[in-house]
Design a protein around this nucleic acid. Structure first.
Lengths: 348, 348
DNA sequence: GGCCGTACTGACAACGATTTCACTTTGGCT
DNA sequence: AGCCAAAGTGAAATCGTTGTCAGTACGGCC
């Protein structure tokens, strides 16, 4: 490995001068130094730099599952911000596991300047630990019960779920099921609350056997949908609380040859790239994914700026959009399976 | 920040002893040290450790686009390997841009022990540069023209494309189009070659206006499909060389109300999670994605082991699978738009 | 030509951990 | 009790860089 000392020797100056040149200060023998750097192929040691300076120019991002198109889009948003800055992104998966999240966070806290975290559950107090406390932390999508002292970019989950409920109610459904997410996560709980509250407010309510809790994975969407279909009186519409469970539900409905939306309407939370291309095109509650990433990164970079480091924590809450496609219809509609693309439209 | 020195003082020993204890060596006052570590919440500085040891316990992974489900799955495979090892993964996007890839690689080479790279193009000689040469490098999916001296995990692109061509030929198509990827990438070129060669071998060939080159993004799949449809004599079948372009093609066919597979058969390279759920379910050439990640990571970890560090480079080539669903049919078939799920099957 | 303020320079001391080396303690044995 | 090998210890050097400090060269001015 070529060190700053070798560059200095070759350029006939001291290491201090080389360092100054590299940091952009004006220096007498800049040509000689540049030549030495090029010839030797010198690159400063990241470890030494960050040991000395205390900075890593790196932002840690921890998401439960990068395979999920939602998180992939969020990360894209973050990258679009860091591209023009000097920061790099260090991405890690917690794989929907609290233990792994703990490990990853502890490790990251030692090697990044700030962390953006989409926590697996709100129960996890690890981020509050002393060691992490010294690293600025921004929550995204979910936050902690006691997390009021952190920056956060959230989505109005309850209102999105309300939109979904009112859409189904507006179509005339009264036997409605919900497949919610884990109740110890913000989105899991708030989406269920918002959905159930809207049903209650309309005087429709929900049967206990239609009020199911999944784990945000495709598999549970699949299995819980099967269980709904096996009921003596299945619902005429179902709300699935995230994109993967929506996909699972759709698979189950296909496998059981259930006509959507003829026999069963389906509305999901979170859009998918392939949403419009599915059989049938899915009606979903959409939210600004890329923008969420952008905002979270901006929030974090701002906090890393000493000038704003001690500002009050900010909580940004984004709104949702109902995207009406063809997977929802009034109950008992005959089996029209594919809608023409022109029927798809966004409403605000 | 709490240092090893403070821990040592509190435990009444020297920093050297604390260090030894932490590295698992037997030590007289282990209880006192453990207590001091816990009470102070001590975590070793990553920068200092890696400066001294020269190791970072981190693997860099650079992919063109993490949003692409293919790369997301590959990364999952890699993580499944590192989970049980002491290594962490540092993931970065090159965003299909060679310049960004250069930057990212140069930066990574300074802070990881090894790199797994899915290069944007084969023309890019940056990975061969001296500075990167000191960091073990494994190629995945694509490699360099001069890259024979590196480990690599590849897919038999030509053979996969041949399978696609023969499937369409077997159905009786003769006016067949191909939307290929960039010709300066391995998969872009090899898939086109494999496809065209199979057509030629069958005496069918391809019209110049049916032999199109895209850029592996959804948008180009969309636009090139539109251009095919505007021809005086459009093809009866089209092969799209990756998953995103397949999606784009399908969108274009939907928008133009073209019946698939009635008026046009569609076969893509790479499966999608939602493949079976699309209208119609897509016939595709599938390849082992997670396994590719697993193999690449194993190859790299092996090379990081001093015992094998100087072994000959290995090139692993994986086979592909035709997954027959409902987007392909004999030419001129009437408009059966949705196949029953039971028709989908895998062939080997 | 001499003076002065500015611009630049090099030696040296950090940053926090690990490792070597020489030394001390321990415990098992006669 | 005394000896010896084995086990454990601390001081100090080191990894590669940056920042401080005291100093030297430069350019502009009278």
């Amino acid at each position: 490995m070529v060190t700053i000392h070798e560059v200095a020797t070759r350029a006939g100056v001291s290491p201090a001068t080389v360092s100054r040149f590299l940091r952009g200060r004006s220096v007498r023998s800049s040509d000689a130094i540049q030549a030495a750097v090029d010839e030797l192929g010198y690159w400063p040691s990241h470890a030494a730099q960050s040991l000395k300076s205390g900075r890593t120019d790196t932002i840690g991002v921890v998401v439960p599952d990068i395979t999920n198109p939602y998180f992939a889009a969020v990360v894209k948003g973050m990258e679009s911000v860091t591209r023009s800055e000097r920061y790099r992104i260090f991405l890690a998966n917690s794989d929907e596991s609290s233990e792994l999240e703990d490990q990853v966070l502890a490790d990251m806290a030692r090697r990044v300047d700030g962390i953006i975290l989409a926590p697996v559950t709100e129960q996890n107090r690890a981020p509050l630990n002393a060691r992490e406390a010294s690293v600025p932390l921004v929550f995204i999508d979910r936050d902690l019960v006691e997390g009021k002292e952190f920056d956060a970019v959230l989505v109005d989950n309850a209102d999105g779920a309300r939109q979904a409920a009112e859409h189904l109610l507006g179509l005339g459904h009264t036997r409605i099921a919900a497949i919610s997410g884990p109740q110890d996560t913000t989105p899991g709980r708030r989406r269920r609350e918002g959905f159930l509250n809207a049903l209650t407010a309309a005087g429709v309510g929900i049967a206990p056997e239609h009020d199911l809790i999944g784990d945000f994975r495709e598999r549970s969407g699949y299995q819980l949908t099967l269980s709904l279909l096996s009921l003596p009186e299945p619902p005429t519409a179902v709300f699935t609380a995230n994109n993967l469970m929506t996909l699972g539900a759709l698979k189950a409905l296909h496998d059981m040859r259930v006509d959507v939306p003829g026999q069963m309407s389906l509305i999901g939370f979170d859009d998918l790239d392939t949403g419009p291309l599915l059989r049938p095109p899915l009606t979903v509650i959409d939210r600004p994914m890329v923008e969420q990433g952008v905002l979270a990164m901006r929030l974090l970079l701002r906090r890393l700026d000493p000038q704003y480091a001690n500002d009050m924590p900010r909580r940004v809450v984004l709104g949702t959009t109902l995207v009406e496609r063809a997977s929802t219809a009034p109950p008992g509609t005959s089996g029209e399976r594919t809608a023409s693309p022109s029927r798809a439209r966004k409403t605000r």
